[in-house]
């Protein structure tokens, strides 16, 4: 009877957690004009807490004047310096801040029918598709760590987390996955 109305066995814990491929990352700060002229390869979103993605590039608006730019170009061919130079050149006339944070953080991909349920062990946000639609991206809390959570699909989330917090996030997700599988 317990948990009767939750997704059936196999579905419940049904999610995978894996590390995303390395990527170049930048934090861009400045006005809407800066965002418009960033020349990053994907339009920067104007709405707060939203992501724009066009593989392999993505831009997440995390604050009113703050974008996290992710360039997940093919491994071994990550154009960090070239991208930075290209954007600095495009933005030379506008006050802004562009900082390379490629190695500051890493990404975990949580995917599957049980993704939201698994994340909700530690994330205090309503992760129903109505409340947290596809394309939403925001900084939030993961138990005792801070993360950026981006919903890439109905059952697909990307977690961006500072590298030293990543083992904690991974271990906690693994513990929750195991519990959910046992419950199912």
């Amino acid at each position: 009877m317990s948990d009767a109305a939750l997704p059936a066995a196999g579905m419940l814990g049904g999610c995978t957690v894996r590390k995303a491929d390395p990527a170049a990352r930048f934090v861009l700060r400045g006005t809407a004009e800066v965002a418009a002229g960033a020349s990053f390869g994907v339009a920067l979103p104007s709405r707060l807490n939203r992501a724009e993605a066009s593989d392999p590039r993505a831009a997440l608006k995390l604050g009113p004047d703050e974008w996290l730019l992710i360039a997940a170009d093919a491994a071994g061919d990550i154009p960090t310096a070239a991208l930075q130079a290209q954007m600095e050149a495009a933005l030379a006339a506008l006050p802004h801040s562009l900082v390379d944070v490629s190695h500051r953080q890493m990404a975990l991909l949580v995917e599957g029918p049980g993704a939201a349920l698994t994340l909700n062990a530690a994330v205090p946000l309503d992760l129903s598709v109505e409340a947290f639609p596809v394309g939403m991206a925001t900084r939030t809390i993961f138990e005792k760590a801070e993360i950026v959570l981006w919903r890439q699909g109905a059952e697909a989330f990307r977690i961006e987390v500072w590298r030293s917090f990543a083992p904690y996030v991974q271990a906690l997700l693994a513990a929750v996955q195991a519990e959910n599988e046992a419950a199912a």
Binding site: L48, P124, T138, R139, T140, I141
Partner: peptide, 11 residues
């Protein structure tokens, strides 16, 4: 007032 959302106190 910036996010225009109700968010949990923990944040």
């Amino acid at each position: 007032p910036y996010c225009e959302m109700d968010r949990p106190e923990l944040e």
